[in-house]
Design a protein around this nucleic acid. Sequence first.
DNA 1: CGCGGATCTTGACAAGTGTCAAGATTTCTT
DNA 2: AAGAAATCTTGACACTTGTCAAGATCCGCG
Lengths: 213, 213
Amino acid sequence: MRPMTQVAAPKASRRTPADKHDERRKALAESALRTLGDLGYARASLREIANNSEFSHGVVHYYFHDKLELIVYCVRYYKQTCVHRYDGVVAEATSPGDLVERFADKLVETIVEEAPMHRLWYDLRSQSMFEESLREAVTQIDQSLEDMIARVLARYAELAETQPALASPVAYGMFDGIFQQALLGHLNGRDGALEELRTRVVELMPMLLAPKA
Amino acid sequence: MRPMTQVAAPKASRRTPADKHDERRKALAESALRTLGDLGYARASLREIANNSEFSHGVVHYYFHDKLELIVYCVRYYKQTCVHRYDGVVAEATSPGDLVERFADKLVETIVEEAPMHRLWYDLRSQSMFEESLREAVTQIDQSLEDMIARVLARYAELAETQPALASPVAYGMFDGIFQQALLGHLNGRDGALEELRTRVVELMPMLLAPKA
DNA sequence: CGCGGATCTTGACAAGTGTCAAGATTTCTT
DNA sequence: AAGAAATCTTGACACTTGTCAAGATCCGCG
């Protein structure tokens, strides 16, 4: 959620004429994401998306070819900021135990703060099982999430002076599974779903390391 | 996909007059499941469902109150047979290693043979994150799947003469995660997705047991 | 047979959908 | 400031959707 001013003003061009287009796409995406997070992929109509924004419903086709392109753009745009969520954890952790704590806390935090975005992601990924045209984007995002987990795990092993016991796809699959489970529980209003996620991650992480000797 | 004849004919009542109703509901559900597995929850219209069956589109509202009731009935109906998929594994395994092999094989087998049903389940579960009225059914099904995993794990620990190292919700979450990952890979046509699932499960299972001594 | 209830079909309705084109409006350039 | 290009609004289109009601058809029982 960094400010949307471009990287800088290289010379005297305060607003590049062609970048305005990109700016608008992002603005549209940001308000579309709110509606998509509320209603999900199928139920969010272009009119509803436009109503919850400062634009009219027709403008979507000026900036996007069709509904699918808008939605893929939105999720890509969101996930782009998402994959660096644990960079701070990796950078600042001082010991294996510290890293585990920080990682678990961050996982809980993002469920509390961005549950609608996460359910939208799972919605889109499920849709991609039916809709061929979603698969490329979903595959790429999934890969970048796996890489994110891999970085955490690598740093964890480094701090513990050992090696990861599992390849990163497995680790990602596992975390994704219990994360999804916690998200579902949280949305169901099940008390303790978040605290359970925390303890589960804490007790799971050590198992992902190869024995020291 | 077992034959749809009822459990038997207990006495002289070959066809109970009121059971005909249930029979029809099941028949409708079975053909609806085909369409739902093809198109998913959102894209499968009642007309499309009816077209791929021997009925007309109006008959749905004779047997079901609305679309949601039909779909929930369908998924419940399917998953009901699903939760006993590994009962044979549990019953017939002769050693820890044998159980792991059989379990992994069965997981792969069901992806090959029932991928559309599995993606339908994930679709429905994702929808339940948005649609309150789906949550009860989804929660119940999820619980029964967790119980299924718990039975496998308990037997595994028993054969290995030790205890499970993780509570069943965690174990279920993990397996669900890597299963979903494999399903996605398989539907994407990624070669090796199934073989990877097999080896991942085989290498993961021993980590779920508490050390022997 | 013929009646009555269950079962099913047909057709319609109202609401909502993505898409697009024609024109209004704003913004920029010269 | 005038004209041109970019941007946005409005309204319509063709189509699909879930739902339901009226009537046709089937079935078993008197």
